[in-house]
Simulated assay, not measured.
Amino acid sequence: MICILSDCASTDSWYWGPSKNGKFSVKSVYYLALNSNIVKNRSDCASASNSLFYKQLWKLDILLKMKLFLWRCCVNACCVNQLLFTTSITHNAKCLICQLDEKSIVHALFRCSFASSCWLASPFRLDTSSFQGNDFKDWICFLFDKYRDAPDQRDCYIQWPSLLWQIWKTRNKVVFIFENPNLTATIKAFNHTVEEGRLGISRFPNPHLPDNNPSSYCLSFDFSLHVSSPTLILAFTDGVWNNKSMKGGRGVILFNGVKRFIAAKCKAGSSFPAASMEAESVRDALLLASSLGFSNLVLFSDCQALVSSLNGISSSLDWAALSIMEDILSISSSFINIEFRFILRSLNKEAHFLAT
């Protein structure tokens, strides 16, 4: 054996085993890392890219900008003070709002005093101190699990990313234009973002509408409601409920004062009794009108008890409807002029059709 090796004319050379041709390449190292779990030790991002977590994140039925924002938060790609401090871009890692802790992405969106106030003021009424996760993905999993059994899961998955998005935008205003954080403005912007997500709209014009002008559509039926001002918006609402299936629906349709169609919305799912569905349809109408920038509104409902309660007259609403009344009155304060009127079911067929 020694003789054979010593008689060999060739010289020794380096050979890279993971490569077929024996030459080193970045590609071969990449595949070696995938097979030997090196990536799991060095980077959570690459190893988790094909995990159930990211699959669930990318399958969310929300606007693409929301998905990208959540992904950037998960992979620590948002420029928060903690990250900038570690790279010597800034000399202060403290949060610019509360000055109490390092501004990580978790602190910015959940633990900061302003972020906590936003979560408490939102429809979730979430106390962020109840969960102690230190990683953003832990918080996302927490939200997934907490609202997995929500009556309307799809709508819930639209709302909490929208709230995170608006909290982040408000913080950016603090950093870049030195604007004081405003809780009311943030919640109002959150409602607008939720409506944007629900309607699946963006800031770009809709190519499927002629002249991109929804008011060019005119319905042929007669309202007979004695409202003719072109500056007013008429909102027709209705809610239905099936006591056997425990499911219901709600419909909203908006017209301007000269009876031209503007927008419509309908929604179905598990619900509380009929009065609460009527109340939710009123809330839907207010949020839709607010998101479209209208400030003068006449709202019609065929639920006499609800209309009486909204006009300050005592009525026999159930507890579920009364809990929604607080949101309705809060949203109503953002309108310059608003009226609540009762309408007969026979004159509210369009909203009833949408609800069913």
Rank of each mutant, 00 (worst) to 15 (best):
C3R: 13
L5F: 10
S6P: 03
S10C: 08
S13N: 04
W14E: 04
V29K: 08
A33F: 13
A33L: 07
L34D: 00
S36L: 05
I38Q: 09
K40C: 11
A46S: 08
F69I: 00
V75E: 12
V80C: 11
F85K: 03
T86L: 13
T90I: 15
D101W: 15
A108F: 08
R111Y: 07
F114V: 05
Q132F: 09
D135K: 04
K137M: 14
F142P: 00
R171M: 00
E196P: 04
G200K: 01
R203N: 15
L209V: 14
N212L: 08
D222I: 10
F236W: 00
G239W: 00
N243E: 03
S245L: 14
K247V: 00
G248H: 00
I253Y: 00
R260H: 14
I262E: 04
K265H: 01
C266Q: 01
S271Y: 04
A279D: 10
D284I: 01
L288E: 02
C303D: 02
C303N: 10
A305M: 10
L310R: 02
L310V: 06
N311C: 12
N311P: 11
S315Q: 09
L317D: 09
D327G: 01
I328L: 06
I331V: 04
F335N: 01
E339F: 14
F342M: 11
